[in-house]
């Protein structure tokens, strides 16, 4: 896959405060890259630098193979952006706001189709000042997708949306990446969103990139942590606690939760069967993004 976004040693300082420090990162075309990190990690600053709202102090950003600074007009016409807490011209209608944005982008637009896509068709003529936070967020998504962009930069895209709408938006974004090959770079605080949507996750902390992994690799099975469905849970638990190859054992919901020192599940099964227990299931626990996030943050 060709590279869509390339950041090379990009830094941003506000006076003596370093928001982003020497960030080197790439996103391939059609890829969904999630930026994760605590508050003040530099996620939003990175996204703002990608869409030209914030100028990097040093380093180079290229998008679609063009330098962002010298090729901004060409890049921006292929890019859709949703900033955090999107603001509009409140005195204009929803429809007029979109038409104005389309005119600036020099792109014809079917406003009704776009509003249908984000579930706001009936609010076409409503003044933006009358919209709720969730509706504003939907309008922000609509204007980001206004020009059928090849690249979407989204800062907290589901902020203010209810659960149903969040799922809907995530499904829509995933479809855009899978079917239309749209590259998506987005930031979120919500691990679930990132797990569902992203092909790759970059974790930032205090302006530094501390990890960048494929989501599939992160969410593999952890064979050192297993749930065992077994008869005689109490007895099995007591016996397992004495074994040197077991780190910890607990009982939750009538199941044994066993943490092994090594990923030797077969040893556990063999031991329990030999001891006369009947096993009806052994479930290795799937790693979560939260596990990984906490691990790299505590490193």
């Amino acid at each position: 896959m060709a590279v869509c976004i390339s950041l090379n040693k990009v830094s941003k300082c506000y006076g003596s405060a370093v928001a982003v420090s020497g960030l080197t990162l790439e996103a391939k075309r059609g890829e969904v890259l999630g930026l994760l990190g605590p508050n003040g990690a530099g996620k939003s600053t990175t996204l703002h630098m990608l869409c030209g709202l914030v100028r990097p102090t040093s380093g180079a950003i290229s998008i679609f193979g063009k330098d962002l600074r010298s090729g901004f007009v060409a890049i921006a016409s292929r890019m859709g952006v949703l900033v955090e807490r999107p603001a509009f011209h409140d005195y204009l209608s929803v429809r007029r706001n979109l038409l104005i944005q389309a005119r600036l982008a020099r792109h014809s637009v079917n406003v009704e189709r776009l509003l249908n896509l984000v579930g706001m068709a009936r609010l076409s003529h409503a003044k933006v000042r009358s919209l709720s936070q969730g509706q504003r967020q939907r309008l922000g998504l609509a204007q980001a997708m206004l020009t059928e962009p090849e690249l979407l930069i989204l800062d907290e895209p589901t902020s203010g949306l209810d659960v149903e709408s969040t799922e809907e938006v995530l499904r829509m974004l995933r479809r855009l990446a899978d079917d239309a090959g749209v590259t998506i770079v987005f930031s979120s605080h919500l691990m679930h969103e990132v797990e569902v949507l992203c092909d790759r996750v970059a974790i930032l902390n205090e302006g530094d990139l501390i990890a960048c992994e494929k989501t599939d690799d992160l969410l593999s099975f952890d064979l050192t942590r297993v749930e065992v469905l077994v008869d005689g849970v109490e007895g099995a638990s007591k016996r397992l606690k004495d074994q040197p190859w077991v780190s910890s054992v607990s009982i939750k919901g009538g199941r044994l939760h066993v943490t092994l020192k090594e990923p030797n599940t077969h040893q556990l099964i063999h031991y329990l069967v030999t001891a006369g227990y009947q096993i009806s299931g052994v479930l290795p626990r799937r790693r979560t993004l939260k596990d990984y996030f906490l691990k790299v943050m505590n490193r």
């Binding site: 921006a76 600036l104 204007q143």
Partner: peptide, 14 residues
Amino acid sequence: ADGSIRQTLVRPIL
């Protein structure tokens, strides 16, 4: 002040 400038500056206009 109202933040609407950000919607304009991400469009293809210098």
